[in-house]
Design a protein around this nucleic acid. Structure first.
Lengths: 163, 163
DNA sequence: CCTCTGAACTTGATGCGTCAACAACTGTTG
DNA sequence: CAACAGTTGTTGACGCATCAAGTTCAGAGG
């Protein structure tokens, strides 16, 4: 690993470690939830009927079904979403955002967007943005190469547009 | 947030979420430790005397002193490092890598380097590497701007050169 | 039919991270 | 020199993630 590769790797750790931490802190501070909880609510808020099946939601948030189940359980207790079994479809379960949940996402979004801008977007030149996009795509492809079918691990982040 | 910014942000989440998860999984699988534990051992292994003060180690690993204290406690129980108070220097404590700890880092390093190459470095063109480096630096600066003095949050990643 | 397999979750135990206290020093100031 | 303030670490409680079962269903095979 040469000088330039090493430097890139060192710098990359800011994106891998400090950036998630900073975004988590912002979300915790301003909206009393986790970055990941925001992801879940945000993804649901983008569906036309604010509803999604657990497994689909798990794929979209890059989480295991187990993790998602725990989180959804908590969010349900807080009245932010509701679960309902789909009849005649095995054990399939739908998760639906409640009005309270929707309101919370809407309230949390601006602060989140501002943080993403402050820490990342506004720091970059247009050509750097394009390259970042290319890199992210390449990394995702490289990781998924190792597990061809099982886990797509698509890592869709919290939506940054207004819900 | 326009189309290009949004796409870059979406792609970036692969670096923020999937990449750390993949590296963690690799480390767990092949060396029975956490990515963060590897960071700690690796940083120590680069010191001439394999020794570092707790607070310095905390800065280098971007961790809170509390987190570090817990982790070091566990690593000490596993015989991978040892703590010793520095006499006449307040509560300062030195952490030293044991031989077992050093051997473990040395054994774990190749697999880690291979993973970093596979998921990131080998995917990128030289100019993309340079841009990634620039982006990482910019992100770190932007985050630190918010907390001028208190927490440097330097995020030094695990060394990728042979220890 | 009746069992079996597989899909889609759920649950419980365990471990790690965080936050807020607390503890152990040193040096400083009245 | 006595109290105090500032550093530097440690600890315990609590929340969240993970992993390995377990559960609940639909449909296939015998």
């Amino acid at each position: 690993m040469d000088q330039e590769e090493l430097a890139a790797w060192l710098a990359n750790s800011a994106i891998m470690i400090s950036l998630p931490a900073a975004l988590d802190a912002q979300m915790q501070r301003e909206s009393q939830m986790t970055f990941f909880e925001y992801m879940v609510l945000s993804v649901l808020s983008e569906e036309p009927d604010r509803t999604m099946q657990m497994s689909a939601l798990a794929v979209r948030t890059s989480a295991s079904l187990s993790r998602l189940s725990h989180v959804v359980g908590r969010l349900e207790k807080r009245g932010l979403l509701a679960r309902s079994r789909i009849p005649g479809a095995g054990r399939r379960t739908n998760t639906t955002l409640t009005d309270a949940g929707y309101d919370l996402v809407v309230a949390a979004a601006p602060g989140h967007v501002a943080a993403v801008r402050e820490y990342l977007i506004d720091e970059l030149e247009p050509h750097e943005l394009k390259t970042l996009r290319r890199i992210g795509t390449a990394v995702e492809a490289a990781i998924n190469r190792g597990r061809p079918d099982s886990a797509p691990a698509v890592s869709t982040p919290p939506e940054v547009t207004a819900p």
